[in-house]
Amino acid sequence: MNNRLRELRDRMGWSQAALAEQLAVSRQTVNALETGKYDPSLPLAFRIARLFDEPIESIFIEEE
């Protein structure tokens, strides 16, 4: 699954560590999400969507 997490984080000017702290996950988890190596659980995806104030489907895009 592709996502816009890096783009959204860059827009806010946050480091991976800062985003990780706000999401209550580790920096490695943020890195794995951004590189598309790990897809988040639904609760984490909802936390990310709430934090950036965007719908989940606009952040996480299913690959064709």
């Binding site: 580790s26 794995a32 988040p40």
Partner: peptide, 8 residues
């Protein structure tokens, strides 16, 4: 106690 990726 760890987050979901670390647990995996």
């Amino acid at each position: 106690a760890v987050d979901e990726l670390k647990r995996r």
